[in-house]
């Protein structure tokens, strides 16, 4: 049962539900790494969006294209 639905049915505060409902993977950044590397690693983790899996219909548009283009003034 989804946590939010359970909260509605049981009058459980949503805030309390958020941490209890879903396990998370915790990441520790090695503090001996150079500061700028730590910053990149930290931002990379902070900027992750969790995508819950599921089924979908995979389609494509034909024809497929090459990206290759030539231009001046890029």
């Amino acid at each position: 049962m989804k946590c939010s639905l359970m909260a509605v049915l049981t009058a459980l505060p949503l805030g309390a539900c958020a941490d209890a409902g879903q396990l998370k993977t915790e990441v520790t950044i090695n503090e001996t790494l150079p500061e700028e590397v730590q910053t990149v690693l930290r931002r990379s983790v902070e900027n992750l969006v969790f995508v819950e899996g599921g089924a979908f219909r995979w389609v494509m548009l034909a024809p497929t294209l090459r990206v290759k283009v030539s231009m001046r003034g890029h």
């Binding site: 990379s44 900027n47 992750l48 969006v49 969790f50 995508v51 819950e52 899996g53 599921g54 089924a55 979908f56 219909r57 995979w58 389609v59 494509m60 548009l61 034909a62």
Partner: peptide
């Protein structure tokens, strides 16, 4: 009359993706 068929069902496990 152009079409993108066949449609193919795919199931993915959960993952995380970079926002940018």
């Amino acid at each position: 009359k152009r079409t993108a068929e066949p449609v193919h069902k795919v199931t993915l496990s959960s993952y995380s993706m970079g926002k940018y």
